[in-house]
Design a protein around this nucleic acid. Structure first.
Lengths: 207, 207
DNA sequence: TCATTAGTTAACAAAATTGTTAAACAATTT
DNA sequence: AAATTGTTTAACAATTTTGTTAACTAATGA
């Protein structure tokens, strides 16, 4: 059933992904995409008809990657340590994923979330994808709260804290190392450590 | 010495600011700017020559606002409470500012930081503007650390933590309330409270 | 191997967007 | 009030970017 994708089609899609991530829809140029893909620019219309529909195909990919990032994080099952360690692990798995494509968050913020139809496309895919894992984690979390393993905090706030910290790290990693005169890896390490400290302290009871 | 700015010039600049913040340079349309400003679109070229140079004028404004946001935050002087309270206040002052124009962070990330010349324009203005206040705060901070008033953490990490939390709040405030079915004010309140808890716990010694 | 289909190319057309100009109008100076 | 200067307008020109086409080539299947 799997459609064979020609090498041309694929390289256009890859090039488009790169160009759209870098420049957004309006900044991207179809001829630049074709060049990057090493094909005649008419091929782009042959395979994808319009810039717009090519963009939709890219969003599809982005949505998949985004879903993957959340799924992988939430799916770090069967952890034997305490619950705080599990949450920390979830954060770290998510971070590792986000760092493999640090341009994704800004792309989502500027190119998807502000456009109702694109947002809808994403929501459908993501919500159905993670709802089970999320509710499972929520239950574990409530239990841990009840057992006084973690501090009082509502689940949503915790998720937003983790996303805030990880996404900030991904975004800043594209500029901060330059500004600070650090190597990217140094910067990652430094911020990752700090994020973990923050999360642990946040979940820690009292003080 | 102050150049009188005609009402036309000013309304173009305002409209341009709005359009560029919403759509970025490549997404902005000069005719849309002219319409928003309620002037013939030739006026835009009469006063600003090109879209590019109009954009530079907008960057100037953005840089000023950005500098203001940092200055105001760092300048919350003469606070009588303990040092942690002071840092928290700095975070809150900065947050209030960021929230008045929540589109600014994404704009900076996508439209300024990736372009060396624009970045330079910003750096010159901002660094010279805040270096004194920042070094002053750094000294107070080191003293507080030495006196065991706050936990061990380096200054830069602290600053990045605060910026991460505040900027995440500003960005997410543009989408999250919708997605969660909250009013914007509820969302602000909820996240602001959480950010403060995080910061206090982070600075708190031991556990 | 010949016919049919799919893929590719270069040249071109169409659309969208920015930038210019000449003429009209308003304000200001002498 | 005449002259000069600055502002505004509508029409247009130039440029950039997307999209199309017709002719050509390579692959595929009867």
């Amino acid at each position: 059933m799997k459609e064979e994708r020609s090498i041309t089609e694929n390289s256009i899609l890859n090039a488009a992904m790169d160009e759209f991530l870098n420049k957004g829809f309006s900044g991207a140029r179809t001829v630049a995409i074709a060049e990057k893909a090493g094909v005649n620019h008419a091929m782009l219309h042959y395979y994808f008809r319009t810039k717009e529909s090519l963009f939709e195909r890219v969003i599809e990919r982005v949505a998949n990657q985004f879903l993957d990032s959340l799924t992988k994080a939430l799916d770090s099952q069967d952890y034997n340590g305490n619950f705080v360690d599990k949450i920390v692990m979830i954060m770290n798995v998510h971070l590792d994923f986000v760092i493999t494509e640090p341009r994704l968050p800004l792309f989502m913020f500027r190119e998807i979330l502000p456009y109702p139809s694109r947002l809808e496309q994403l929501k459908i895919k993501v919500l159905s994808g993670i709802s089970y894992l999320a509710s499972q984690l929520l239950h574990e979390f409530d239990r841990a709260k009840h057992n006084k393993e973690v501090d009082e905090i509502d689940f949503l706030s915790l998720i937003f804290d983790i996303l805030s910290l990880n996404i900030s790290l991904a975004i800043s990693s594209q500029f901060a190392p330059d500004l600070l005169g650090l190597r990217k890896e140094e910067y990652y390490a430094m911020r990752k450590k700090e994020n973990e400290i923050l999360l642990r302290k946040r979940l820690q009871i009292n003080g």
